[in-house]
């Protein structure tokens, strides 16, 4: 016997392996940004985050690479996943990227390092451990509000 209460159904689902692949690329780009302290690298990643946050994670260049080159080579069946969790993660990533850009432009390098480090940690955890950022932080944010 199952009762589902107050559930807001979302019809839009994507292949769960897409966001995971995107997290791998995001990890590599953020690691590059952190190692080189390069404004352009973090800016490029910020644009990717913005597309994922506002249009949806299925529209980023990383998702395009996944659909064009990776997905046709995968043998296992697609696992459907709600787009809202990765979209939330992209929004959080965008905030960190914008903070890093602000740090870089104003010369506050500590802000740049901390902000990129936070984004890198989340992306790496997602890529390596299937970490769900929305699961861990969204309810906490609501609770302290």
């Amino acid at each position: 016997m199952t009762q589902i209460l107050n559930e807001k159904k979302s019809a839009v689902t994507i292949d769960a392996r897409g966001p995971r692949f995107s997290a791998v690329l995001t990890t590599l780009v953020l690691a590059t940004a952190l190692a080189t302290a390069n404004l352009w690298v973090i800016s490029a990643q910020a644009i990717v985050f913005a597309i994922g946050a506002f249009r949806g994670p299925q529209f980023t260049p990383y998702a395009l690479i996944f659909r064009s080159f990776i997905k046709p080579r995968l043998k296992s069946a697609a696992i459907p996943e709600d787009i809202r969790p990765p979209q939330f993660a992209q929004s959080v990533g965008l905030l960190f990227a914008l903070a890093a850009i602000a740090g870089s432009i104003t010369g506050i390098s500590a802000l740049f390092v901390v902000a990129v480090s936070c984004a890198l940690a989340a992306a790496f955890l997602n890529a390596a451990f299937n970490f769900c950022l929305g699961c861990e932080v969204y309810l906490l944010l609501l609770r302290v509000r």
Binding site: Q3, R84, P85, C132, L133, C135, Y138, L139
Partner: peptide, 28 residues
């Protein structure tokens, strides 16, 4: 919650577990 990837899998699993247990309820 809305931004939760494993919630869907959890629902499917728990629905499946209680399906043949009439004395156990699943409430989401």
């Amino acid at each position: 919650s809305a931004f939760c990837t494993p919630c869907r899998a959890t629902r499917v699993l728990l629905e499946n577990i209680v399906a043949d247990m009439p004395d156990v309820a699943h409430v989401e």
